[in-house]
Simulated scan of single mutants.
Amino acid sequence: MTILIFFVALWYLSLFSQTFFQHRYAAHGAFTMTKFWERFFFLFSYITQGSSYMSPRAYAIMHRMHHAYTDTEKDPHSPNFSSNIFSMMWRTRTIYSGIVHNRYPVEPRFVRNLPEWGGFDHWANSPLSRLLWVAIYISFFLIFASSFWWFLLLPVVITMGAFHGALVNWFAHKYGYINFRLGNTSRNLLVVDVLMLGESYHNNHHKKPSSVNFGSRWHEIDPVYPIILLLKRLRIIHFSKKTTHLKT
């Protein structure tokens, strides 16, 4: 039971970091925050994502490329140009690594207003950091796993961020329903998205990328949206001028 609680907590905490900080804030600038709070969420993302930590800067660049080049060969993670989900994940990882280490050519339009913490990102993306987190996870499982079967969750724990990304970027461009007719294959994967904290409303998101609420229809619950409103009320974040609240 301890392993299950740990897995569920890590699933949602790491996913929250990704959708709130790396996606809505870094990639789309749906809201702003002070440097103090930006550094706070850098650390929060590192703690909650562990071995699968994603640089907010590199994530933002790659995600902006996805929106600019959706379903084309320049899309970092398009099912149209990968034979299976694993080859797409590997291609995404290669491009991400190239961006992190400044080996991948990036257009100037994709690097505007990015959160930067170079020294911290260098450590958080280092092999040593990732190996230390893997060691922590393995130790936790060795101590608390009451059965060998719990270890089947360990690969997902280690690659949690990539696992989340693959679910959305592969399946939400293949399956689901459409609210908005767009010039791409984006779809809303889940009718009520508690599992992916609103990230599966991919068609809605492609319609209005800067919307702080990924839901559109009455049944499309975005669990992160009330948290964003609370953080705004607490003045931890502030809505930017381009912020929208997606409604049909």
Rank of each mutant, 00 (worst) to 15 (best):
T2K: 15
F7S: 11
F7I: 09
A9C: 14
L10Y: 14
L10G: 08
W11L: 12
W11A: 05
S17R: 02
F21C: 06
F21Y: 14
F21R: 01
R24K: 14
A26V: 03
H28Q: 11
H28R: 06
M33F: 09
W37V: 02
W37C: 04
R39Y: 12
F41N: 01
L43D: 07
F44C: 06
S45D: 11
Y46P: 00
I47D: 04
T48V: 08
Q49T: 09
Q49D: 08
S51Y: 00
S52E: 06
M54L: 15
S55F: 02
S55R: 00
S55P: 04
P56T: 08
M62K: 12
H66Q: 12
Y69N: 05
Y69C: 03
T72A: 06
K74A: 11
H77M: 09
S78M: 04
S82M: 09
S83C: 09
I85P: 01
F86Q: 12
M89H: 07
Y96A: 07
G98H: 06
I99A: 05
N102F: 10
R103H: 15
R103L: 14
V106E: 10
E107Y: 13
E107F: 12
R109L: 14
F110Y: 15
L114Y: 08
E116T: 13
D121L: 05
W123K: 11
A124V: 07
A124F: 04
A124L: 05
A124P: 02
N125A: 05
P127N: 12
S129R: 11
R130T: 07
R130L: 08
L132H: 11
W133T: 00
A135S: 11
I136S: 06
I136F: 13
Y137D: 10
I138K: 04
I138A: 12
S139V: 00
F140D: 03
F151I: 10
F151P: 07
L154V: 12
V156Y: 09
I158H: 05
I158M: 10
T159G: 06
M160E: 03
G161E: 05
F163H: 12
H164I: 02
G165C: 05
A172M: 03
A172S: 14
H173Y: 09
K174L: 13
Y175L: 14
I178D: 12
F180D: 01
F180L: 03
R181N: 15
R181L: 11
R181D: 15
T185W: 08
N188W: 03
L189F: 11
L189R: 02
L190Q: 03
V191F: 13
M196G: 00
G198E: 01
Y201S: 04
H202E: 03
N203Y: 00
N204L: 00
K208C: 02
S211R: 00
S211M: 01
V212C: 11
N213G: 02
F214K: 01
G215E: 01
G215Y: 00
G215H: 02
S216N: 12
E220F: 01
I221K: 02
I221A: 04
D222A: 04
P223D: 08
P223F: 06
Y225A: 06
Y225T: 01
P226S: 06
I227K: 07
L229A: 06
L229E: 11
L231W: 08
I236C: 08
I237Y: 01
I237K: 00
H238M: 11
K241R: 15
K242F: 05
T244V: 10
H245W: 10
L246N: 00
K247Y: 09
T248D: 12
